[in-house]
């Protein structure tokens, strides 16, 4: 049997080492990015080229790639997530069908990223290519739009289930008050439930946005892996995460590695920022609802 003292020390060390882990983690990223930061400074965020041969590196195309793909994905997923949230949170919030529906959405959430990528590559890419031929743009098939499409499907479960929770948790007294005043169900949802849950809904979408930004494999497989600055949403590109995944295999020297790690650092900071905002909102909400 472990002694009391051993357990106490073990608990403390475990807790402290989680803090230490994060600290060393962030320091590692910063430390390994230093060579690149020293050379490029803020230009790392303003240039438009990433060229390993001439050693001219700027992460802007990928920062833009990440922002465009994830916001586009959010935009595409928005009506669907909202619809699922409303249907599961208000119309079918209990019972067998609701359970079944939710299980299927959980299944969607459980499909590994790499499988989404593979499916995107074999199913979506040819379809998008046909579409591009019709519209008369360069028929790459792969590209920012295709990535956003895959991402949209991937993030729907996260925002939808959170939205469902938020709409479901709108106190019954408000819903019933609205109905008692003669509002139709639509008016009740639109004018009472959704406005009441709006910050929760916002947090749900932020959570999904954070997911989309950090997502790697599915994007890497369908974005086309181009380091040029994307000209349109149909052109191939790279996100910060797909750049790291793709370029890592080609790392030839420490300086090149350092630039890639700096991109990872940038990605780290952006996703943390988004997630902290979302968590902050959720926490404030839970404080409010407990009052």
């Amino acid at each position: 049997m472990l002694g009391e003292k051993t357990l106490k020390i073990f608990v403390f060390i475990s807790a402290a080492s989680v803090l230490l882990l994060l600290f060393v983690f962030a320091s590692t990223l910063l430390w390994k990015s230093l060579p690149s930061i020293r050379v490029f400074g803020y230009k790392f965020l303003t240039g438009t080229t990433w060229d390993p041969i001439s050693e001219s590196f700027s992460a802007l195309p990928f920062l833009v790639g990440t922002l465009v793909t994830s916001f586009l994905a959010l935009l595409i997923s928005f009506p669907f997530s909202l619809a699922i949230g409303v249907v599961l949170g208000e119309y079918f919030n209990t019972g067998v069908w609701s359970y079944f529906f939710r299980s299927l959405i959980e299944l969607l959430a459980g499909i590994p990223s790499v499988v989404y990528g593979f499916w995107g590559l074999s199913f979506l890419v040819p379809r998008v290519r046909d579409l591009q031929v019709k519209f008369g743009v360069m028929p790459y098939g792969v590209g920012i739009f295709t990535s956003a499409l895959v991402l949209a499907i991937m993030i729907i479960p996260f925002s939808a289930l959170m939205l469902r929770e938020m709409i479901y948790l709108v106190p019954k007294k408000y819903k019933e008050a609205a109905l008692a005043l003669g509002a139709t169900r639509f008016e009740m949802i639109w004018k009472v439930a959704l406005p009441y849950a709006r910050s929760g809904i916002f947090a749900g979408f932020m959570l999904a946005l954070g997911r989309a930004m950090g997502e790697t494999m599915a994007v890497t497989m369908v974005i086309g892996n181009s380091n040029d600055f994307p000209r349109s949403i149909f052109s191939p590109g790279n996100t910060m995460s797909s750049l790291v995944a793709n370029e890592f295999a080609e790392v030839s020297d420490n300086f090149y590695l350092s630039t890639i790690i700096q991109v990872a650092l940038l990605l780290f900071l952006v996703t943390i920022f988004i997630n902290i905002i979302s968590k902050y909102i959720t926490r404030k909400l839970s404080v409010r609802s407990s009052l």
């Binding site: 807790a15 989680v18 803090l19 882990l21 994060l22 983690f25 590692t28 990223l29 390994k32 954070g210 930004m213 950090g214 997502e215 790697t216 995460s241 790291v244 995944a245 890592f248 890639i260 790690i261 990872a264 990605l267 780290f268 996703t271 943390i272 988004i274 997630n275 902290i276 968590k279």
Partner: peptide, 25 residues
């Protein structure tokens, strides 16, 4: 409080970044 914050942050780190750091370590 700091520990909870760290756990939240670790949860939100993109998996590819974790891969890079594990590579360095």
């Amino acid at each position: 409080y700091l520990l909870r914050l760290s756990v939240d942050i670790i949860q939100s780190i993109p998996s590819i970044v974790i891969g890079i750091v594990a590579y360095v370590w």
